[in-house]
Nucleic acid binder design. Structure first.
Lengths: 179, 179
DNA sequence: AGGTGCATGTAACAGGTTACATGATTAA
DNA sequence: TTAATCATGTAACCTGTTACATGCACCT
């Protein structure tokens, strides 16, 4: 069984969706999946070569004009490896790194309005993310549409949570100044 | 200004909360913050030494019985560095890596029940996480309580989302078999 | 002529995980 | 006596980011 790296999986999936060059894959990744999976050129291009060595993809040189351009397709082995991963029963990876939650955890050394400011800063990051998600428009395929819907839903949930906490922190402040 | 690594920040925060040894910090990290921030020994111990070299913490050797034990405290510089980070207006880091969303994005090559199975597998990961969060009990401090509340809320939101999608996929299946 | 987009690539670095090694203490 | 817990540490590895370098094509 061929071992597939995380980035390798993304590449196979993207090629299956019809993205044929490293550049194309990067474009779509940044637009549509970076909310839950980041891809960088530093991983992408070396990984394309590795996948070709493993026989999971085949590339052909197909310049567009005088511009160098490498076009990839899945091999049968590649298609099989993608499918194996897609239906694998292994517990899926789920990782979150949230600096604001870390600060929240340690926030007993902060004044209420300082914590509120941190939550507001986080909220504005999420609001910008929401704008980007809204700018995408309805995807043609069901899979991308579903994952976009998840992204919007979760982002909204987080925005609401922050707003609620900020308000509570503000109210608590007022009450304690009144007293 | 002293540059603080991500793990360095966690350490300073944890020492401020009264955790004095590498082991203690790791215990509390695994219990309470691993849902949004992971810490490993391989980072922890080298980082403790680096922080001491930088003068942000001071350690003293304080064996418990014949058992080697290094106890750390914040210095004034360390307390200042922690505070600087805590109130920093920089846009905070927010990163998610979700394998199931990746599969969802590529799911047009799957049958509906195969995608549903993937979502169910993800849901069971989140349900186990929820059990762990429920096992924690009400924290004494406000910060930890807040971050726990976030963790529970977001986990529940995800569980609900998965259940809804699974049901829709099941229903769609029935309808299409009926037709 | 110059800026944006298409297109590929790498070197240096940062950050983190896994697996292993070691050994004392404490409770069953 | 033996298993769990306390306690520290590192080497090898993996994965990924950042910053840079290169150059053509197309539009204005």
């Amino acid at each position: 069984m061929t071992e597939l790296t995380p980035t390798g999986r993304v590449i196979l999936g993207m090629i299956a969706l019809g993205k044929q060059t490293g550049y194309d894959i990067k474009q779509l990744s940044d637009l549509a999946i970076r909310h839950f999976w980041a891809v960088s050129y530093g991983q992408l291009y070396p990984e394309l070569k590795r996948l070709e060595e493993q026989g999971l993809i085949v590339g052909r040189h197909e310049p567009s004009g005088g511009r160098a351009r490498q076009v990839y397709d899945l091999t049968e082995a590649g298609r099989a490896a993608l499918r194996d991963w897609m239906v694998s029963p292994e517990p899926p990876l789920w990782e979150v790194r949230c600096e604001t939650l870390l600060k929240t955890f340690f926030s007993d050394v902060l004044a209420p309005e300082e914590l509120a400011a941190q939550l507001a800063s986080f909220r504005s990051v999420m609001e910008r993310k929401m704008e980007q998600l809204n700018a995408i428009g309805q995807p043609q395929h069901a899979g991308p549409a579903l994952s976009l819907q998840f992204g919007k839903g979760m982002t909204e949930w987080i925005i609401d949570w922050c707003r609620d906490r900020e308000q509570q922190l503000g109210t608590a402040r007022e009450v304690s100044t009144d007293a």
